[in-house]
Design a protein around this nucleic acid. Structure first.
Length: 612
RNA sequence: GGGCACGUAGCUCAGCGGAUAGAGCGUUCGCCUCCGGAGCGAAAGGUCGUGGGUUCGAUCCCCGCCGUGCCCGCCA
């Protein structure tokens, strides 16, 4: 029987604190139920959801549950009565329980409990905070997935930071996760890339050639072309466009890989779209859909036929503009509308070429074939309109709609103070002119740590307003600096302790012989409680797919460290009047704190620096 | 026209249906010369865009409206 008495110090359980508390409350609930204290409530299954949360006000306890209020109706009892009944079965010497006004049950962690949990951190070290999911899953996380047509820009940087952190966070929460980059290396854009490079190459040879319309105008292609001209002279003049495509792709993809690696974003697989074509996966996936009755041939979609398409953009209002080119023949449609998309989508054009969607169908078909039960994609908001048709694909292939999870992230805007006006100005990025701020630029300007931090610290559905000045700041107004500084500060204390006559012991003791706590100041307690909340923070970051919870947590933790440091001296001479046992208990708290800060930063892909 | 997201303190943003809505910056007022200096403490500052609804309880869920951003191809 798992009672409140056995809480804490149990290194075998992978339960977070809130899970442990919820478990205890559930058991107390069962006891109350069996004792007939829950009124009209007829059964305890399905198990009622037990919310355990950290109250905003400390008077309401370290943790609290409103479970009695949600049970009031089925029990037909006053919430207070229910709360009293549950609370009466929660008594123990490790946690103080009290019932408050409307029907809250407030829990206060006792010294022994806190001390035991601190010991657990010291024992588990970097594994503290690992949890086990309710449902184990094999997840494929796909992100960035750019065209190999140029340097990765700031937007890609956001997906890289979030994807790579999320991968670590999900793994720490017990999921099996693989990460993948889908290389969009097929289609006419590669043709255009080759053409652009060839023209640049000819320009570099001194020829007056115009770049074709819509070509890639970024300076990186010019540099590539000049390198080619310098190394090969005019010997490549006769090479076909395809040669230039392949060359450009090879160079640009290699550069993207280097950039991402520098940005601490590693992929388990780089998956080439072209390889799907070569392996016949597109035909295989379409054959699968065909066999399921999900395809049909027509000159236009069923919805257009029936006049069901209203409210479209100008482009979409003229769906047959292509007829002139392709002779108005029949295309192959996928019945996306059967699964919630607004209309059916073309997978094979009238001219016989497959569409981008067809390749994406094949890619996701292949992901499922490889045995992943959950697919998570991170896309920019500019692709959100694509979500319904991909969800339709998942369902048409026989998978639940929610097995494909598409996280839509808003865009990144960059701000910098103009030295002339002193005003913050947006650095406008223009894709047309090839002027995008690249991840390489970002790394050069602010470094990987600050770059990642600011791209991670906002919720996915908020636009990031990236403040370059703030990210460069080496003062406490810069949160990443503040967090790293406080980690380094812990390291410094641990480094100096032996020099000041306090060698680091094997074990720390947090309780006095009489069972009371050495750590009893508000700062010590706040810090310790923050550490105990870490596993829940990691867990929620995984469940909510929300790395920004951890930047927030890291900051709050650093703030607790800072206050602890100000008020609780440890090393002589500053602390020489204090009892050694107290100083050692504080030192133990520093060891645990450093560990949790380091774990949190590692999950974010930010370096826990030992010195600044 | 339609879709998605957003609207919370002067600014940038957090906020798992719970009690008195938080943080940083900025502003005001006090401290501090300290194990690692770039600080610490406090105060002021809010009709959570708006109008309804669901709920014992709504910043959070649902609907309408207003405002902002992104998107709506037999492109990729």
């Amino acid at each position: 029987m798992h009672t409140i008495h056995t809480l804490g110090g149990n290194t075998m359980t992978a339960l977070s604190l809130q899970q442990q508390l919820a478990e205890s409350i559930y058991i107390a609930l069962g006891t109350a139920f069996e004792a007939g204290q829950l009124g009209q409530l007829t059964q305890l299954s399905p198990r009622p959801s037990i919310v355990v949360e950290k109250p905003k006000v400390s008077e309401h306890g370290d943790y609290a549950t409103p479970v009695a209020m949600s049970l009031a109706k089925p029990c037909r009892l006053a919430p207070l009565t229910i709360a009293e009944a549950i609370a009466s079965h929660l008594t123990g010497d490790k946690i103080a329980v009290e019932v408050a006004k409307p029907g809250f049950i407030n829990l206060r962690l006792g010294h022994r409990f806190v001390a035991a949990e601190l010991q657990r951190i010291l024992e588990l070290k970097g594994d503290y905070g690992r949890t086990v999911p309710e449902q184990p899953e094999r997840i494929l996380l796909e992100f960035v997935s750019a065209n190999p047509t140029g340097p990765l820009h700031l937007g890609h940087g956001r997906w890289a930071a979030i994807g790579s952190s999320l991968e670590r966070i999900l793994q720490f929460a017990g999921y099996t996760v693989d990460s993948e980059f889908y290389i969009n290396d097929a289609g006419n854009q590669m043709q255009l890339l080759g053409l652009s490079l060839k023209q640049r190459y000819l320009q570099a040879l001194g020829e007056a050639v115009e770049l074709p319309d819509g070509s890639y105008k970024g300076s990186y292609l010019k540099e590539l072309a000049e390198q080619l001209a310098a190394a090969q002279g005019d010997s490549l003049r006769g090479e076909p466009v395809e040669w230039f495509s392949a060359y450009a792709e090879g160079r640009l993809l290699a550069q993207q890989k280097i950039t991402l690696q520098q940005f601490r974003t590693d992929f388990d697989r780089w998956y080439s779209e072209r390889s799907l074509h070569q392996a016949g996966a597109i035909e295989a996936a379409l054959a699968d859909l065909e066999a399921r009755g999900m395809l049909y041939r027509a000159t236009c979609s069923r919805q257009e036929q029936n006049g069901e398409i209203t409210g479209r953009s100008k482009k979409a209002q003229a769906p047959h503009a292509f007829d002139e080119e392709d002779g108005g023949g029949e295309a192959l449609f996928f019945k996306a509308a059967d699964f919630g998309d607004e209309m059916d989508r073309v997978v094979k054009r009238a001219d016989g070429n497959t569409t981008y969607l067809a390749a994406d169908i094949a890619y996701h078909w292949d992901k499922y074939q490889r045995g992943y039960g959950r697919l998570i994609n991170i896309w920019g908001a500019d692709h959100h309109g694509y979500v319904p048709r991909m969800k339709a694909v998942a369902q048409a292939l026989g998978h639940p709609a929610d097995s494909l999870e598409i996280l839509i992230g808003q865009m990144v805007r960059l701000f910098k103070t103009n030295p002339e006006t002193g005003q913050k100005e947006e650095m406008r990025m223009s894709k047309r002119r090839g002027e995008l701020v690249s991840i390489d630029d970002l790394i050069e300007e602010v470094g990987v740590d600050a770059g990642r931090w600011f791209l991670l610290s906002q919720s996915l559905n908020t636009t990031v307003n990236f403040d370059l000045d703030l990210a460069q700041s080496e003062k406490f107004d810069n949160p990443v600096f503040y967090v790293q500084y406080n980690h380094a500060r812990c390291c410094s204390i641990l480094r100096k302790a032996p020099e000041r006559g306090m060698p680091i012991p094997e074990r720390f003791e947090f309780l006095r012989p009489d069972g009371s706590a050495w750590l009893e100041t508000p700062q010590e307690r706040a810090l310790a409680l923050r550490l105990l909340a870490a596993p829940d923070e990691y867990r929620f970051a995984a469940i909510d797919r929300a790395p920004q919870r951890l930047t927030q947590f890291a900051y709050d933790l650093a703030s607790d460290v800072s206050q602890f440091y100000e008020h609780c001296p440890i090393l002589p001479p500053l602390a020489e009047d204090l009892q050694p046992a107290l100083r050692y208990a504080r030192l133990g708290l520093v060891v645990a704190t450093r560990q949790v800060l380091a774990t949190t930063l590692t999950l974010l892909g930010i370096e826990p620096r030992e010195s600044m």
